Simulated scan of single mutants.
Amino acid sequence: MPTLAVYGAAALAEIGGCFAFWAWARAGRATWWLVPGVASLCLFAWLLTLSEADHAGRGYAAYGGIYIGAALAWLWAVEGVRPDRWDMIGLGLCLVGAAVILWGPRG
């Protein structure tokens, strides 16, 4: 599975799992919301092991840019709040940083 697809799937799993905890703790949802939340977070952790990165820390750092993009997409699609220009500028900076970390030449 290509790295960007792994990171995209991991981001959805992480955000979904964290949202389940948010819904339980902050929005008063039923305790059973924690079950799919934990499963989703376990899926997230497993998916990150499929990254092509040579080292875990570098893989996690590069994943951060993709996570931020997915979080802003979640903000818009699920929470109904459209990201503003500052959100998008920040996302662009993060994606550039993630690309440098993941694909930068190593000597």
Score class of each variant (00 low, 15 high):
residue 62 A to E: 05
residue 105 P to W: 09
residue 13 A to V: 10
residue 77 A to W: 09
residue 107 G to Q: 07
residue 56 A to R: 15
residue 87 D to G: 11
residue 23 A to E: 12
residue 48 L to F: 05
residue 33 W to P: 00
residue 9 A to L: 15
residue 55 H to C: 06
residue 81 V to P: 01
residue 26 R to S: 13
residue 5 A to H: 09
residue 2 P to D: 15
residue 86 W to T: 07
residue 21 F to I: 13
residue 46 W to I: 13
residue 58 R to N: 13
residue 20 A to I: 01
residue 31 T to Y: 10
residue 59 G to R: 02
residue 30 A to R: 06
residue 4 L to D: 02
residue 49 T to K: 10
residue 106 R to E: 14
residue 6 V to Q: 03
residue 90 G to Y: 11
residue 65 G to M: 07
residue 43 L to Q: 00
residue 28 G to Y: 08
residue 2 P to E: 10
residue 10 A to I: 05
residue 70 A to K: 02
residue 56 A to F: 15
residue 98 A to K: 08
residue 103 W to D: 14
residue 101 I to L: 15
residue 61 A to N: 04
residue 87 D to T: 04
residue 43 L to Y: 02
residue 107 G to P: 14
residue 32 W to D: 13
residue 7 Y to G: 03
residue 8 G to R: 00
residue 46 W to Y: 13
residue 18 C to W: 00
residue 105 P to M: 08
residue 71 A to F: 05
residue 85 R to G: 03
residue 96 V to W: 04
residue 107 G to H: 09
residue 3 T to R: 08
residue 18 C to P: 00
residue 53 A to G: 13
residue 1 M to T: 13
residue 70 A to T: 07
residue 77 A to R: 09
residue 12 L to T: 10
residue 92 G to Q: 11
residue 7 Y to N: 08
residue 64 G to H: 00
residue 41 L to I: 08
residue 69 G to F: 07
residue 54 D to R: 15
residue 88 M to K: 02
residue 6 V to E: 00
residue 80 G to E: 05
residue 80 G to N: 04
residue 11 A to S: 15
residue 104 G to R: 13
residue 62 A to H: 07
residue 21 F to Q: 04
residue 29 R to D: 09
residue 29 R to A: 15
residue 95 L to N: 01
residue 100 V to C: 10
residue 32 W to S: 14
residue 10 A to Y: 02
residue 30 A to G: 06
residue 84 D to M: 00
residue 98 A to C: 14
residue 89 I to V: 15
residue 39 A to V: 11
residue 16 G to P: 03
residue 90 G to W: 07
